[in-house]
Amino acid sequence: MTILYDIETDGLFLKGIEEGIEKGIKQGIELEKQVFVYKHSSLQEFSLEKIALIVDISPERLLEMLLAYLQTEGQTKAEAIRTVEAHQARFV
């Protein structure tokens, strides 16, 4: 006897799809924030505190993102820290 079951109407299946969409949206928003931080920090028109306020993230999270980005661009951790410090000194 053949049992036919439409998985696309299953409650758990639909819940999983919804959770996946929400997770994708959150990841997309996080990626856009990172791009904004990288672009605006490289332009050096705003202080890091102002960028954090605009992007609506904590200054600590902004520093984490920026240091990680600079290291992926080939800077050592020490060089990345100096780059960030130089940026911050510009706005003191």
Rank of each mutant, 00 (worst) to 15 (best):
Y5T: 03
Y5H: 05
D6Q: 12
D6A: 09
E8D: 11
E8L: 12
T9Y: 04
T9H: 11
D10W: 02
L12V: 14
F13H: 14
G16A: 08
I17K: 11
I17T: 12
I17N: 04
E18H: 08
E19L: 11
I21K: 01
E22N: 13
E22A: 14
K23E: 12
G24D: 05
I25H: 02
I25L: 03
I25F: 01
G28R: 09
I29F: 01
L31W: 02
E32Y: 00
E32Q: 06
K33M: 10
Q34S: 15
V37S: 12
Y38G: 00
H40N: 14
H40T: 11
H40S: 04
S41P: 03
S41Y: 10
L43T: 10
F46S: 12
F46E: 12
E49A: 06
K50R: 15
K50M: 07
I54W: 10
I54C: 05
V55G: 07
V55T: 14
D56R: 15
I57V: 15
S58N: 15
P59C: 10
E60M: 15
R61H: 15
R61M: 13
L66S: 05
L67Q: 10
L67W: 08
L67C: 08
A68L: 15
L70V: 06
L70W: 03
G74L: 06
G74M: 05
G74Y: 06
Q75A: 04
Q75C: 04
K77R: 13
K77G: 05
E79G: 06
A80P: 09
A80I: 01
I81E: 09
R82P: 00
T83M: 01
V84S: 00
A86L: 02
A89E: 08
R90N: 07
